[in-house]
Amino acid sequence: MTTATFHPTGDVVAQAAEAGYFPGRHAVEVTAVERLTDGVYRMTFRDAYIAAHARPAQFVNLFSKDPMKLLPRPFGVSETDGDLVSVIFAVVGKGTDEFSRMRAGDTVDVLGPLGRPFDVKKPAHYVLVGGGLGVPPLIYAAQSLAAAEGSRTSAVFGYRNERFADAYVARHADATYSIDESEGNVVTLLDRMESDGTLHVDGLDTVILSCGPLPMMKAVSLWASKRGIACQLSMEQRMGCGYGTCVVCVVDTVDGRKKVCSDGPVFTSAQLGWEA
């Protein structure tokens, strides 16, 4: 007995969007896969719906062509350009290795955009604090905020070694600061910004948006809390479905356990109880 997977065409996806329905899993064209550094890749695919509707910190699920790999891999949207969507990911297993080997003209199944985004409605100085593979959603935050009147953005990125995302975020952010493990960490950069007066600019409230390793985000959250700075954190967690059914990605909050995929991935410091 064989089973078939339904792959709606671009026209079907467009019709669903026009009718107000969220498009289901569907195949899209890969337009490029680039190696940024050792084990880190940037994939671009064509999907007008995701490009038009994705918000900062939302993610997409990519599906392996191997029927034995049932679970999708979630990746934060890193940039959009017209009907093109880019994601940046590290090769950590067979699924991500498969994606890294794709080429222009291949197809991949996608579902999204998913999750609760950063709240960037009010004018502010948004300080985008990311570490490692937590930086892609912050690139998209910078891109989205570049079109917002009255806001400014500063990217504060920490890397293990090679600064693979600086060139991308610098296209959108007003200022870019980065550091590697030999020099310090993102809190080192935040301290410098506080000392030199670049943390608060143009009389705007400062808001931190952060994504990256858990210890880094906890440290950033506590740093911000001590200074009365609002902090939103995009949590990284293993996921199964990506839309709240499987309950794999739960995280502890002050209001009990919440699902990162649907209740998040964005939570405030207060929600997580990460305050000084």
Results as ranks from 00 to 15, higher is better:
Phe6Thr: 12
His7Val: 10
Asp11His: 09
Val12Ala: 12
Gln15Gly: 05
Glu18Ser: 13
Ala19Pro: 06
Gly20Thr: 05
Phe22Ile: 12
His26Asn: 07
Ala27Arg: 12
Val28Ile: 10
Val28Lys: 03
Glu29Asn: 09
Val30Gln: 03
Thr31Met: 00
Thr31Tyr: 01
Val33Leu: 10
Glu34Met: 01
Glu34Pro: 03
Arg35Ala: 15
Thr37Asp: 10
Met43Cys: 08
Met43Arg: 03
Met43Ser: 08
Ala51Ser: 11
His53Pro: 01
Ala54Cys: 04
Ala54Leu: 03
Arg55Tyr: 01
Pro56Phe: 07
Ala57Thr: 11
Gln58Ser: 08
Leu62Asn: 10
Lys69Pro: 00
Thr80His: 06
Asp81Phe: 04
Asp83Thr: 05
Ser86Pro: 03
Gly93Val: 02
Asp97His: 11
Asp97Pro: 00
Asp97Lys: 14
Arg103Lys: 15
Asp106Phe: 02
Val108Asn: 04
Gly112Arg: 01
Arg116Tyr: 04
Arg116Ile: 02
Val120Ile: 15
Val120His: 05
Val120Leu: 14
Val120Ser: 08
Val120Trp: 06
His125Tyr: 11
His125Phe: 12
Gly130Arg: 13
Pro136Gln: 11
Pro137Ala: 09
Ile139Asn: 05
Ala141Arg: 09
Gln143Pro: 00
Ala146Glu: 12
Ala147Pro: 00
Ala148Asp: 12
Ala148His: 15
Glu149Thr: 14
Arg152Phe: 02
Thr153Ile: 09
Ala155Glu: 07
Ala165Glu: 06
Asp166Cys: 10
Asp166Leu: 01
Ala170Ser: 15
Arg171Gln: 15
Ala173Arg: 06
Ala173Glu: 04
Ala173Met: 00
Asp174Ala: 14
Asp174Tyr: 12
Asp174His: 15
Thr176Arg: 11
Tyr177Ala: 07
Tyr177Cys: 01
Asp180Tyr: 05
Asp180Gln: 01
Asn185Ile: 04
Val186Gln: 12
Leu189Tyr: 03
Asp191Phe: 00
Met193Trp: 07
His200Glu: 15
Val201Glu: 11
Asp202Cys: 04
Gly203Met: 07
Asp205Val: 13
Ser210Glu: 08
Cys211Arg: 03
Gly212Cys: 05
Gly212Gln: 08
Gly212Lys: 08
Gly212Ile: 08
Pro213Thr: 06
Leu214Tyr: 10
Met216Pro: 01
Met216Asn: 02
Ser221Gly: 09
Ala224Tyr: 10
Gly228Lys: 13
Gly228Thr: 13
Ile229Gly: 10
Gln232Asn: 08
Leu233Trp: 05
Leu233Gln: 13
Leu233Pro: 01
Met235His: 04
Gln237Tyr: 00
Met239Arg: 09
Tyr243Cys: 11
Gly244Val: 06
Cys249Thr: 10
Asp252Ile: 08
Lys259Phe: 15
Ser262Met: 02
Asp263Asn: 15
Val266Ile: 12
Leu272Ile: 04
Gly273Trp: 12
